[in-house]
């Protein structure tokens, strides 16, 4: 500060602060008084604010404020509001048939949004985040369904699971292990060639496939169908298509005939509730494979 250099500027008639940079001097123009009052008003506002709202950070937490407002409380209020609006639609979703629910644009959008979220939490562990499955875990995007791909069938599968003994309504089937004394290794190989033939895949040993045809009619057709069309009620896979849960080579098929693996899916009725299951069913059906 160079107070001694203060002087009255002759052009403006205002005193300078005495600060000078390269000959440019700063005028000491007084602030308007209303500005001062605005400043005091801000201080008064902040004093009130500090009392009413969380404000001063202490060691473990900030002061709470007498209104009891918190951002977390605010969020939970908003979540409650959303839950209240969703409750209405959740009830509506269950009040109609699943087909009608899926056909209603707003219920469908609601179900798909909720179903997507539930899927990401509960289903991706086996079916994958894109629902594309893997060996032994069905791809839910395609049009091949072991236990039926209609809305109602998908919902039933979701509610009670597959081969899940906790639920009386769970669907169950078991393919005999043909390697355990029913068929010989050579016969199993013949049947496997025939199955490849049914699926229209390349058959290396045409004679073996022909031999396998007879065995297939005797042993397999009752569940898998005469031409390998499968059976939804028994969860018997379609054999004459391009989709193979455990692989489409002769060795893969022979292995499955010898000692079949059976997938197990848990039922979700108790864990997720019927409303979420219905949302999931509509979502999964909409992935593109629904029948």
């Amino acid at each position: 500060m160079s107070d001694d250099q203060r002087r009255v500027d002759e052009i403006s008639g205002t005193e300078t602060t005495g600060h000078s940079w390269d000959g440019i001097e700063e005028l000491n123009t007084p602030l308007p008084r209303w500005w001062l009052w605005t400043f005091y008003a801000c201080i008064a506002f902040s004093a009130v604010y500090v009392v009413l709202f969380p404000a001063i950070p202490l060691v473990n937490e900030a002061t709470q404020g007498v209104l009891g407002w918190s951002s977390r409380g605010n969020l939970s209020e908003e979540l409650d509001e959303v839950a209240a609006t969703n409750l209405e639609r959740t009830e509506l979703l269950q009040a109609v048939s699943i087909e009608d629910a899926a056909a209603d644009p707003s219920l469908r959008a609601f179900a798909i949004a909720g179903g997507r979220a539930a899927f990401q939490v509960n289903c991706v562990q086996c079916h994958g985040s894109g629902a594309a499955g893997g060996a032994g875990y069905p791809n839910l995007n395609d049009d091949d369904w072991l236990w039926g791909g209609s809305l109602a069938q998908i919902e039933e599968t979701l509610l009670y699971g597959i081969r899940h003994d906790q639920y009386d309504f769970t669907r169950w089937s078991e393919m005999p292990a043909f390697g355990a004394g029913i068929l010989t290794r050579a016969e199993i190989s013949d049947v496997a060639w025939h199955v490849l033939d049914l699926a229209g895949l390349d058959v290396d040993d045409v004679e073996a496939a022909a031999r396998g045809a007879t065995l297939y009619y005797d042993q397999c057709a009752s569940c898998h169908g005469d031409i390998g069309e499968g059976m939804d009620d028994l969860g018997a896979p379609t054999l004459n298509d391009a989709i193979w849960l455990f692989g489409d080579t002769h060795a893969d098929i022979a292995k499955q005939i010898t000692a079949p693996r059976h997938g197990v899916m848990p039922g979700w009725q108790d864990r997720l509730g019927e409303a979420t299951v219905r949302q999931l069913a509509i979502y999964v059906h909409g992935l593109g494979g629904g029948e």
Partner: peptide
């Protein structure tokens, strides 16, 4: 374009993209 899955094989051997 769907990225997960990139494509889906259908039962008749078709390939489908979403």
């Amino acid at each position: 374009h769907d990225r997960n899955p990139l494509f889906v094989a259908l039962s008749d051997g078709s390939i489908r993209n979403g």
